[in-house]
Simulated scan of single mutants.
Amino acid sequence: VPVLSADTNEADDLIIDGIALGITERLLTRSGAKPGELVCVTGDLGRALAGYLVWKNKLDVSGRVKRRLYEKFLEPKARVLEGLALSKVASSAIDVSDGLAKELHLLAKMSGVGVEVYPDKLPVGEGVKKVAGLLGLDPIELVLASGEEFELVFTIKPELAKELGIEFSVIGRVVEGNGVYAIVDGKKRKIPPLGWEHLGNPKPITPDIK
């Protein structure tokens, strides 16, 4: 039976879930990205996973940093205004619920294109570098694998991006081909689909992009 939408996941507890249906003037899907377009994301990334690692490993971080990291879990913010703006001009979009790398792989696959990411352009959230340092990880790894972010990743023509009227970061570009790559010192390195794996084991958070 094809699954059209809703939350397909696994858990030990009974979960009552629901979906909402609506009508839109323009359908914004995951399959409209075109070569030459920008790859962008709202907000900052990495705090959700970094916060989880602080809790799991009982890391010693300051109260301010801990509050900023836990904010993603305790006070999630839906990007409604940004979504409305993107619905008019973006070519494709998806929310970061399972991990940035995984969402980019999904956009690339469904659009039949490749995606190039510039690691130095990724918006690393406050406290992420601190946590990465304590655990001996690259903060970019946390950003790529962090789920439950609920930021919006989207593709858009460069000339249209200037007229959006919302805050966002340009993190890469859409290219011909397939797959997701990091551009480091002019060289392409594959980025695996890091993030939460539904109905299976989570991917490790150690992409080889250095």
Results as ranks from 00 to 15, higher is better:
residue 166 I to Y: 14
residue 85 A to M: 02
residue 34 K to L: 13
residue 74 L to M: 11
residue 136 G to M: 11
residue 174 V to S: 06
residue 163 E to S: 12
residue 158 P to F: 04
residue 125 G to T: 04
residue 14 L to N: 11
residue 162 K to N: 14
residue 125 G to D: 08
residue 118 Y to T: 05
residue 168 F to I: 05
residue 35 P to W: 09
residue 124 V to F: 02
residue 73 F to S: 10
residue 55 W to A: 14
residue 52 Y to G: 12
residue 173 R to M: 13
residue 9 N to L: 13
residue 96 V to D: 01
residue 19 I to Q: 01
residue 43 G to P: 06
residue 166 I to R: 13
residue 151 E to S: 12
residue 92 S to Q: 02
residue 71 E to S: 04
residue 44 D to N: 13
residue 161 A to I: 08
residue 40 C to M: 07
residue 50 A to C: 11
residue 190 K to N: 00
residue 112 G to K: 07
residue 41 V to N: 09
residue 194 L to V: 04
residue 82 E to I: 05
residue 167 E to Q: 09
residue 129 K to S: 15
residue 83 G to Q: 05
residue 174 V to K: 01
residue 165 G to N: 10
residue 153 V to P: 06
residue 168 F to Y: 13
residue 127 G to Q: 06
residue 43 G to W: 00
residue 180 V to A: 01
residue 30 R to C: 02
residue 73 F to Y: 15
residue 134 L to N: 07
residue 48 A to W: 03
residue 69 L to D: 13
residue 164 L to A: 09
residue 52 Y to F: 14
residue 27 L to W: 00
residue 139 P to W: 09
residue 45 L to A: 14
residue 192 P to K: 02
residue 148 E to N: 12
residue 10 E to S: 14
residue 188 K to C: 01
residue 9 N to V: 12
residue 125 G to K: 09
residue 158 P to D: 13
residue 200 G to T: 00
residue 130 K to D: 15
residue 194 L to W: 01
residue 107 L to R: 04
residue 89 V to D: 00
residue 137 L to R: 10
residue 210 K to W: 14
residue 135 L to C: 12
residue 130 K to C: 00
residue 140 I to Q: 15
residue 148 E to Y: 06
residue 81 L to T: 08
residue 98 D to V: 15
residue 128 V to Q: 04
residue 155 T to E: 07
residue 22 G to V: 08
residue 177 G to S: 02
residue 63 G to T: 08
residue 166 I to A: 13
residue 15 I to F: 08
residue 148 E to S: 14
residue 164 L to M: 09
residue 82 E to K: 04
residue 81 L to I: 11
residue 99 G to I: 08
residue 151 E to W: 01
residue 161 A to R: 12
residue 121 K to T: 00
residue 114 G to D: 06
residue 1 V to S: 14
residue 141 E to I: 00
residue 129 K to T: 15
residue 185 D to I: 00
residue 105 H to S: 11
residue 144 L to I: 05
residue 99 G to F: 09
residue 85 A to Y: 00
residue 143 V to E: 05
residue 142 L to I: 15
residue 99 G to R: 03
residue 47 R to S: 15
residue 185 D to Y: 02
residue 137 L to H: 08
residue 105 H to I: 15
